[in-house]
Design a protein around this nucleic acid. Structure first.
Lengths: 128, 128
DNA sequence: CTTGACCTTCCTGTGACTGGAAGGTCTACA
DNA sequence: TGTAGACCTTCCAGTCACAGGAAGGTCAAG
C-alpha cells in the first residue's frame, strides 16, 4: 500500500506520515523503487497515533504510548498516569480560557459598538 | 529608559520587546551608543500590547488594535467586532477542549490503573 | 510514447517567541 | 587608570507539528 492509500486509510495527510517517519515515530518498509510500503501493522500504528493526537497527546506522548502498547509487561497504571497528566493539562487550559473569556466578555458588554470612537475595550488595554 | 527597565516596567521580557520592534509592532528610539531608549509613549504601547496578548489577541490583532487606538475617527463597533471574533475563537477552543476532556476522562475512569497490563485506554487507541 | 497521477527528497515558512554566542558599552570601585 | 561585571547590541538556531512547493523519478492507461 502506497503512502497515498495509507493517508486515506488513516485520515492523516501523506506529509504527516512522512514526518512521523522522519522523527522515528512510525517506520515504513520500502519497495525496490523507493516507494514507501504500508502493511496492516504500520496502518495500525498510524491510526493509533492519529487517535492519541486527537485526544490531545503530544507527539512525544505518542512515542511513550506506542512503547507502552508494545510492552507486554506494562502496568495499566503507567498509561493511566500519562492520561491523567494530560487531563490535568487540558483542565488547566480550559480554566485559563474561561477566565479569559470572562474578561473579554465583560469588555465587550461594556462597549456600545456604534459609530462613535469611545470604546471601553481600548480604554482598558490602554489604562495606566 | 533602557530595554531592561522597560522590560521590568511592562512585564515583557527584553527579548520579546526586541521581537516586537523587529516585526514592526512597537518601534523604539535609539541613543547615540545604539542602545534602545524607551519613553512614556513606547511603554504605553508595550503595555497595551501586553494586555491585548494576555486577553488572547494575536500579534496581528494587536497591530489592528494599536492602529484603532491611534485613530480618532474609529468606530467602537470596529473594536467590538474584533473582540467578538476573538471571543468566538475562544469559545470554540473551550468547547473542543471540553469534548476532549470528556473523552479522555471516560477512558481514564475505565482504566484500573494497577500493575496488570490490561488497559482500556490503549485498547481504545488501538481499536480497529 | 506520452500524459498525468503518483512518488521521492530537500528547503522554506508558520507563530511567537526563547536561548545562546560573540562582542560593544557603561558604571562603580580599587 | 584599570578592571570587573552588568548591561546592551546583532545574529543564528531551536521550539512544535507540520504545510507548501520545487525538482525530479516512477507507474499505469491509452
Amino acid at each position: 500500500m502506497n503512502i497515498g492509500d495509507a493517508a486515506e486509510a488513516t485520515g492523516l495527510p501523506a506529509k504527516t506520515i512522512r514526518y512521523y517517519e522522519e522523527i522515528g515515530l512510525v517506520a515504513s518498509n520500502r519497495r525496490p523503487n523507493g516507494y514507501r510500503n504500508y502493511g496492516e501493522a504500520e496502518l495500525h500504528s498510524l491510526r493509533f497515533v492519529q487517535r492519541a493526537r486527537s485526544l490531545g497527546f503530544s507527539v512525544s506522548d505518542c512515542r511513550d504510548l506506542l512503547s507502552l502498547y508494545g510492552d507486554r509487561e506494562r502496568s495499566s497504571a503507567d498509561v493511566k498516569a500519562l492520561a491523567q497528566a494530560k487531563l490535568k493539562e487540558i483542565d488547566a487550559k480550559i480554566e485559563e480560557l474561561q477566565s479569559l473569556r470572562s474578561a473579554l466578555g465583560n469588555l465587550i458588554d461594556a462597549c456600545a459598538g456604534d459609530h462613535r470612537p469611545d470604546c471601553p475595550i481600548l480604554d482598558d488595554l490602554a489604562r495606566d
